[in-house]
């Protein structure tokens, strides 16, 4: 679609913090997966804290970040979502229904993804490995049996996450092949081609991301090192 360059302009869609958090989660999730399956719990914990930090940052950035990162700009009610789905299935390619940022379906997938990832890390904080030694830092507040139960929920929720990630990738392939919209590069370099319109989205200053990241890192470091 961007072959007709004259009628399209390159607009910045995703800011740097949003993209970094996205790819950090992808990489750390992979590390968590591998170290979890092979019982390398030391590295598993470290990567898991990374995921937790990234999720908390993304939640905060959804409140105070740039326009396309804000929940307020992309989370829609059921009616708007339903309308979007009808347009999407209507094969009306001349009128791409996608907003510049996340579409209403993508919004649902983001909420589900953030929710399940947060659940995953919180379950991990209380989980006890079979050996009773390599456990989450909050496992000391639960019994061995309860900690093992957390570990089983941790494993079950992981399979939900795998299913959701499968859906996420399927959706991206759908847009690529059924609607000729290539979503992947935009999440890497941050730009999309669009018909010129009344300006692009607004962005938040970088120091706000730095403050948020520093605050979350401090809180996590304190929380994970409580002695009593």
């Amino acid at each position: 679609m961007n072959a007709t360059g004259a009628t399209h302009e390159r607009v910045r869609v995703w800011d740097f913090p949003t993209r970094i958090v996205h790819w950090a989660i992808v990489i750390l999730f992979g590390i968590c997966w591998w170290t979890g399956e092979t019982e390398h719990m030391h590295w598993h914990r470290i990567a898991g804290y990374g995921v937790l930090g990234a999720i908390l940052f993304r939640l905060g950035w959804g409140l105070c970040g740039g326009e396309t990162a804000r929940f307020r700009s992309f989370v829609r009610g059921p009616a708007a979502t339903f309308q979007y789905v009808r347009k999407l299935l209507g094969h009306d390619r001349a009128d791409p229904p996608s907003p510049i940022g996340h579409n209403p379906l993508g919004a649902l997938s983001i909420l589900a993804m953030l929710g399940l990832l947060l659940t995953q890390t919180v379950l991990g904080l209380f989980a006890v490995d079979v050996d009773g030694v390599a456990s989450g830092p909050f496992a000391r507040w639960v019994s061995f049996a309860t900690g093992r139960r957390f570990a089983h929920w941790h494993a079950a929720n992981f399979h939900l996450l795998l299913a959701l990630i499968g859906m996420h990738l399927t959706a991206i392939a759908f847009y690529r092949f059924a609607r000729s919209e290539n979503l992947l590069p935009a999440m890497i370099h941050g730009f999309k081609w669009r018909t010129p319109s009344a300006g692009g989205p607004y962005f938040a200053p970088w120091w706000r991301a730095a403050l948020l990241a520093a605050g979350i890192a401090t809180c996590l470091a304190l929380l994970l090192n409580i002695r009593w």
């Binding site: 006890v128 050996d131 030694v133 000391r140 061995f144 002695r227 009593w228």
Partner: peptide, 15 residues
């Protein structure tokens, strides 16, 4: 064995 190892580990978290 697991319960006992956890119990011991919980102790070393204390000051």
């Amino acid at each position: 064995l697991g319960k006992t190892a956890k119990s011991l580990r919980d102790q070393i978290w204390r000051s």
